[in-house]
């Protein structure tokens, strides 16, 4: 029997699933994105760059892409700001408290994104808990507009994605030699200097890896922006969805999806290369 056969056979089921579920739809979407669409005639099997040109030239799409990446950068930044200290504090906790807090941080991952986002909607809606309380104690008279704002989308996305940052930083913290902090202290560094000069540079790869995950997930997020952002505050993923299901312009939706994919791949890969290059000399 061929020596190479067993590995292929063992890989077979996974390969088939990948090809059928991922590669085929992707290729079809890619082909679709070059077709044209007529409001009366439907999708026509011709090929051209017109959909891409439309997205690239129309300021309507520019705004959506800018908003998407603006949100992604903000969410990534906030996740790093919250997640990294959170992971560090966790690593310093006693075992019991650490398990409890890890459960609290990772617990939300067990709940569907839709459910969590709807929870946010209940909190921050015009008749939501927050507004009711604020009106109740007389701080405001008319409800604050929090739903359908960029801010609410960012806050909810941070909530959804911060566990990924915590886990990523946590992993690098595990590799940190606990004596290194003591070494810095014994050399006369304050606790703050130790954190800034010794701990932070060493967990940076974790922060950067976490940023990568958070950024990619935010840029392609759909559920949270569609529920909390609503119809008008569109991001790329919800725009593609609308083109498919409302306008029924599948080719345009496909081209938007393809551009989003390519942009994400470019950002993620160049970022990854930067991180690897910067830290290659220091870390294994």
């Amino acid at each position: 029997m061929n020596r190479l056969l067993p590995p292929y056979l063992l890989n077979g089921p996974a390969l088939i699933i990948f090809v059928v579920m991922l590669v085929v739809p992707m290729v079809m979407t890619f082909i679709l994105s070059f077709n044209s669409f007529d409001f009366y005639g439907g999708i026509k099997p011709d090929y051209g760059w017109h959909n891409y040109l439309e997205v690239v030239q129309d300021s309507y799409f520019h705004e959506i892409f800018l908003r998407t990446y603006g949100i992604a950068i903000a969410v990534t930044f906030l996740c790093a700001l919250i997640g990294a200290p959170e992971a560090y504090i966790l690593s310093r906790m006693s075992k019991t408290w650490r398990s409890l807090c890890l459960l609290a941080i990772l617990g939300p991952l067990l709940i569907s994104v839709i459910v969590r986002t709807l929870g946010w909607a209940l909190l921050i809606g015009n008749n939501g808990v927050v507004n009711e309380i604020l009106i109740g104690i007389g701080i405001i008279e008319t409800p604050l507009k929090m739903m359908f704002t960029t801010g609410s989308v960012i806050v909810a996305l941070v909530h959804v994605l911060v566990p990924f940052m915590v886990l990523s930083v946590w992993t690098t913290l595990q590799k940190l030699d606990p004596q290194v902090e003591n070494a810095a202290l014994s050399l006369g560094a304050s606790h703050f200097t130790t954190l800034r000069r010794v701990v932070l540079p060493q967990v940076m790869p974790g922060v950067l890896a976490g940023s990568l995950i958070v950024f990619a997930l935010t840029a392609s997020a759909f559920a949270t922006p569609s529920i909390l952002g609503g119809r008008r505050l569109k991001v790329v993923a919800t725009t593609a969805y609308d083109e498919y299901l409302n306008t029924l312009n599948w080719p345009l939706g496909a081209s938007i999806a393809v551009i989003l994919l390519i942009a994400n791949v470019v950002v993620v890969m160049s970022y990854n290369r930067y991180v690897e290059k910067k830290y290659a000399a220091v870390f294994d």
Partner: peptide, 19 residues
């Protein structure tokens, strides 16, 4: 506190700053 004791320490793991 340890950062005010003026003591030099060589750790078992050396605890060098890798970066």
């Amino acid at each position: 506190s340890p950062n005010a004791r003026d003591i030099g320490i060589v750790f078992q793991s050396y605890a060098l700053f890798p970066h």
